[in-house]
Design a protein around this nucleic acid. Structure first.
Length: 280
DNA sequence: ACGAGCGCCTGTCGGC
DNA sequence: TGCCGACAGGCGCTCG
């Protein structure tokens, strides 16, 4: 579920309050309850419960789709995967269905990890680089230039859709924002990365940044039974709009499978690669 | 180097 | 009504 804009929205709420909860900055962790041990990637539940109490929450950062909670001694990294969410509650609140981990905080607060599908993971480590060290560039970081992006596209021979979803290539994009960015850039999802010229690469990077920034501004997208609070889903151009008219040209949006992922695009605005058998 | 297939989980929806 | 498969915002693994 959550991609970069949703993760950023959640981080912002943890830092400054929002989404119905208070800030966790400056609070200390007083206890931990592991309701589903599978949520812990490392260390073991025993070690986790031994190490985390007493640590102060000093900062909340995002790297790609990872949430980094800087503690006095360690960093707690959280990946929400498909259905995870982090909520700040009162310790007296009832334990909701699908809560998997709860951290008791000072001031009677509680940080709850709710994760219906149990795909989300926690890491409690001294050095966060052991977890996020091999992620690709941060798309909204100004030091990631169109020239570097073009160079990286040239260094692979892959279809754009799976390449943009590859967190080693670029961090933070998921199925929604990839489809939206490709449509905005007028690039077909099956175009091969090393065929892009510098101006197309520049247009793609700009499109990626625009859809991510709009997503953040709208506090992410809320889909299905998982409520986020954001409303970007009302502004999708192609994602889950199969058969509906393209906002640019009115032609129906198409859906194909690319690397087992549902992929939405306009067959008119986003011209497919190579197969030039017939001409008009 | 790359793509395909699968596993991890729970829930919803449409078709029969 | 009930069952069954397809599908869902992610990602890591194995295998060709």
């Amino acid at each position: 579920m959550p991609e970069l804009p949703e993760v950023e929205t959640i981080c912002e709420a943890l830092r400054n309050g929002g989404r119905g909860g208070e800030s966790i900055l400056g609070r200390s962790i007083v206890s931990s309850h592991i309701l589903w041990e599978g949520s812990l990637a490392e260390p073991s539940a025993l070690e986790f419960k031994r190490r985390i109490p007493g640590q102060l929450i000093e900062a909340v950062q995002r790297r790609g789709k990872f949430i980094l909670i800087k503690l006095s001694d360690d960093t707690l990294l959280i990946h929400l995967r498909m259905s995870g969410d982090l909520l700040v509650e009162q310790q007296s609140d009832p334990v909701a269905e699908h809560h998997r981990v709860m951290l008791g905080l000072s001031d009677h607060l509680r940080l709850a990890f709710n994760d219906t599908r149990k795909f989300g993971r926690f890491w409690l480590v001294e050095d966060p680089q052991t977890v996020v060290g091999d992620l690709g560039p941060e798309p909204l970081n100004g030091s990631f230039t169109p020239q570097i992006f073009h160079q990286r596209l040239q260094s692979h021979h892959r279809q754009l859709k799976p390449l943009l979803l590859d967190q080693h290539f670029i961090a933070g994009l998921g199925n929604i924002y990839t489809d939206e960015a490709l449509h905005r850039a007028r690039l077909h999802p099956l175009v091969i990365s090393d065929t892009l010229d510098p101006s197309q690469a520049d247009r793609l990077l700009q499109s990626i940044r625009q859809v991510l920034e709009e997503g953040i501004q709208r506090q992410g997208a809320s889909i299905d039974w998982i409520y986020r609070g954001g409303d970007f889903q009302n502004y999708f151009s192609v994602y889950q709009r199969t058969g509906e008219p393209c906002p640019n040209c009115g032609q129906p949006i198409l859906r194909i499978l690319v690397g087992q992922r549902s992929t939405h695009f306009c067959g008119n605005c986003q011209v497919p690669p190579l197969p030039k058998t017939k001409e008009e």
